[in-house]
Amino acid sequence: MKLLIIVPAYNESENIVRVIEELRETVPGYDYVVVNDGSVDATAQLCREHGYPLIDLRVNLGLTGALQTGMRYAWEEGYDAAIQIDADGQHDPKYIPEMAEKMEKNRDDIVIGSRFLEGKRQLTPRTAGNALLDWAIRLTTGKKVTDSTSGMRMYGKNLLRVMGFNINSSPEPDTLAYLLRCGARVEESPVVMRERTAGESYLNPWRSVRYMAHMLSSILIFQWFRRKGDANVHNG
């Protein structure tokens, strides 16, 4: 299976070199590409200096647009699968081979790196929000997902096209719910995520509330208006 690791990066000059070096060391067999999302710091420059494969977006498109670029590239270059890894070092690349193995063996369309598959989750506002979204997905699709907000997701060949070209394909739980309803085969694989070591998290309380409202309405309501036929999701 030809796998591309997509690393969307926005103003990650503090992290990017460390993250990519770890990636090269841990999983040397896989291709990777950094998608610089119009950063105003030295992210792109650092990538060029170190010779990392880079897609340099000149304008900031947001995470969805950056990831979409990577998916588009993966599809056009004929990859069989692609995985998203955050440029802040939260995702440990050592889990990638196991996820790829699962995808190949079970012909999955999506493999999610789940933080909550093993062990109990502690109750914090964040995990509560997570659980609420998982519940909404279960309610509307009948499928059990334990970590729908995980940013560490692997997409199979047919989903590269869907994720790369469909206007609604954000790397968010509502897209996951939609794809599940379209019949995508989703599996989870246990991962442990790290705290970010430098830089600031994007989420603050106000943004989190808005995010939850947006996701819940999207999963519970708008989903029913979306056409199912758009995504021919199955691999092989």
Partner: peptide
């Protein structure tokens, strides 16, 4: 907005491909 996004993405992807010396697609 969608058109603009596509334009930016296509430009960036093409640039990357040219740098890698790959032939243009589509």
């Amino acid at each position: 907005r969608h058109q603009m996004t596509e334009l930016i993405q296509n430009t960036a992807i093409r640039e990357t491909r040219e740098k890698q010396g790959k032939p243009e697609q589509k």
